[in-house]
């Protein structure tokens, strides 16, 4: 499957991927509203996180592992592997907010929703025509979506 691969050598730490993710997952699809209104009101947050360590930084999100620890740990069946697409899919309705997945995913790819007992996890922007928003937005092509 096509995954998103971050290149730490050329990640410039601008956090624009996070803004793109936020906008792509917003109701308004408008960066300004997403960032200034929806973030506060509905706890909209980015699935992508830029990690910084000295001069190096890298934008990480769910790897959509072949054998995901999060799926093994999820007590509600909210996290499952989609056999067709290979994505690790999240069903918000099923989730009970037990944070088992957050504990189990060794890649730090799961975050708590800021307002609700739900998680925030990358969905590869599966319904976005142009593919993952972060990849499209990265000004330095430090994120690539490809088959490897």
């Amino acid at each position: 499957m096509k995954r998103v691969y971050p290149n730490k050598d050329f990640c410039i730490g601008c956090h624009i991927c996070e803004l793109a993710c936020l906008t792509a997952h917003s109701k308004s699809k408008d960066l300004i509203l997403a960032y200034t209104v929806e973030r506060g009101e509905s706890g909209l947050s980015s699935c992508k996180h830029v990690h910084e360590g000295g001069p190096t930084c890298v934008a990480l999100s769910c790897r959509h592992c072949d054998e995901p620890s999060c799926v093994a740990a999820c007590i509600s069946g909210a996290l499952q592997k989609d056999p067709e697409t290979g994505r690790t899919v999240y069903d918000r309705e099923k989730c009970v907010g037990c944070w088992s997945c957050l504990m189990a995913c060794p890649f730090g790819a799961i975050a708590r929703h800021p307002l609700e007992a739900k998680i925030v996890k990358c969905d590869l922007c599966h319904d976005r025509p142009g593919g993952p928003a972060c990849v499209a937005a990265c000004p330095n092509k430090a994120l690539k979506q490809e088959e490897r």
Binding site: N7, D9, F10, C11, I12, G13, P55, T56, N140, K141, A142
Partner: peptide, 18 residues
């Protein structure tokens, strides 16, 4: 712009692919 610099934080702004 990451051009006339060897600072690792800045130099990486030039991805050779791009």
């Amino acid at each position: 712009w990451g051009i006339a610099t060897n600072d690792a934080r800045l130099a990486k702004r030039q991805n050779p692919d791009v």
